[in-house]
Design a binder for these strands. Structure first.
Lengths: 193, 193, 193, 193
DNA sequence: CCATAAGCGAGACGGTACGTCCCGTCTTCTG
DNA sequence: CAGAAGACGGGACGTACCGTCTCGCTTATGG
């Protein structure tokens, strides 16, 4: 049956991605090798190359598949509360193992590999950015934000400092930090009386 | 003479770094190899390994040495003008070839290699951050900024969105973009009447 | 109908052998692959493996099937004329393309693959050797050869130098050469007065 | 010292050839792999590829180096005795393990690989053939052979049937067999009264 | 002012992994 | 229901670099 085949193929795909994460956590992305993934999964190398064109593509898939951003963005009616909730969730997700280091490596790889960069954007970055901007726009329409406020930039100000810490200064990503960022953003965000 | 010797050694060091940049621009950092750098420079591999412990360290040196941040931060008395000037300079430097792509690769490498991350911070990121914060502090002391304004976060809000574009969404880095960021930051920055 | 089926099967068998010869002539036996034969014939690999256990067996079949030795050995009554005719025919067959190089490869393969060696003997070598010896025996019985003459060795002296040239020194196989061999053989062959 | 270096290199070369023979005897030439030779010798693959361009070339060297034909051809004054001695020595060498099977494989490889064929001729076949013909010529000059006797063909008649047995019919190579060949050859060789 | 050691180019070396090819087996779907 | 299509685990290919290691050859003082 067709189901069987898909299932079997899917099983292997899953198993390979699982091993990839395992090995990446053990030895780091830099020392990860397709050879080792194949060996540990008990799979021929070709079975991997048939599915992914490069180590980067495999790693991207392995990291993002279990972490596709949820489809909804909380909307309690209170834009500040909603933004706060989201940014803290991001800190929890990216600021610590297991995803943190993997995600850092993924962004690192994206600097060398345009295909990875594009896929990362499409599957992870843009969806979340779009939902954030959409939520902001709703708030603006409801008069919670001044009408000339720059929503795209607001989104970038929420994300940018977080990535700056994560990738550049590599200091620990804390809730306290994003709270401070949020506070500054809010200062310029709320409609002046 | 000792001078000669140092000069000779320095010459080689310079030559190797020059070749490294050349090759990195031709084939990209990922395909750069110490073997190729040695061959093109006309130097034994050992001569490279004697100076740098890894490809990452060599690349970092090659990229940063000609781009150490200047020692001063403009201070015209007008904090807004000064910040604007700096951020536009950063866009000019990082937002286009030749440095742009190299710098992206360098940050990418820093995600896999803690030594590179540390050196990048020490030689490039922190000095500039410190000077920015110092300039902000001066402005605050002069009453141009509200006294409870969060200077570290302000600096991160200037840099973060820039890096977010450069590394994550990989859209072109424009002056118009940083101008918009600056505008939002200023909204929360100036002392409220 | 059963006829159809057999015909269909035979067609495929023929087609596979034809492709095998084609490819062997194009790329040489060493680079011949069952994969390529299957692909070019438009046949599943399994269809080949169902018929032949190995590349060697397939190649043997492909080479020998159109070249099974004829059933008769000329008998004009003149043993010298008959031997001469046969040996020149052998030179024409094996000493030049298309069969020459294929046959050399086949003998080469026989050195690694006992099954091929056995089949080669059974289908090609022994039949011809037997007929040669039989023809010699008839001549001996008719008094054209001295009675204590060693017929098996005579056969080997006719074939051996030919194979020596073909396989070992790899000089061109000429009619002049076998003529000289024949002359020496005849010197020890004819009954001394 | 230069000696050290040469010695070191020669040591490795020797070790690799030794392992090659070992493995060839264990698994056969067909299943011999450069990978396995490298692994068992404790040597990088490149160290083998640096010395030999192919498995065939390596194998040829490994087989022939310890078996270069001696420089002399016995000359007791009795051409028959000398030929007999040589041909029996050949049977002893090629007709049984360890060299027999290896040599068969080598000739097999020569059918696919012109470089191997050429080297085999140059290092093993031609030297012996030349010495045999030279010995025959001496005998002819001394009147032991009829003056119009075909020396090249005589040599081929000594070697050919031996190779015919070894490579084609693959029957055991016995002293009795070559003795019978010799006898027929002698019949046409000696000057007729 | 020469002996000596340090730096150097060259590149061999044991390794690891690459990405590809083909093996022979197995499964699926189609004509 | 035989056969094409091709996925699969496996093994080897030949290549590219890794980082370490001699090896002779400058060359430039320091005894």
């Amino acid at each position: 049956m067709s189901d069987d085949r898909l299932t079997r193929a899917a099983d292997r795909t899953q198993a390979i991605m699982r091993t990839t994460l395992e090995l990446a956590q053990e030895v780091g992305y830099a020392k990860l090798s397709i050879e080792a993934v194949a060996a540990r999964t008990g799979v021929g190398k070709h079975t991997i190359y048939r599915r992914w064109p490069s180590k980067g593509a495999l790693f991207l898939d392995a990291v993002l598949t279990p972490n596709e951003p949820g489809l909804h963005y909380a909307d309690t009616g209170d834009i500040v509360a909603d933004l706060r909730q989201q940014i803290h969730a991001a800190v929890d997700l990216l600021g610590q193992p297991p995803l943190g280091p993997l995600y850092r490596a993924l962004v690192g790889e994206a600097q060398h590999n345009p295909m990875v960069a594009a896929a990362l954007n499409e599957r992870f970055i843009r969806p979340q950015a779009d939902r954030t901007v959409a939520r902001l726009r709703r708030a603006q329409e409801q008069g919670q934000l001044s009408s000339e406020f720059d929503l795209d930039v607001a989104m970038a100000i929420l994300s940018g400092p977080l990535y700056f810490r994560l990738l550049i200064t590599q200091e620990p990503l804390t809730h306290e930090y994003v709270e401070r960022v949020l506070k500054v953003l809010l200062a310029g965000m709320t409609p002046r009386p």
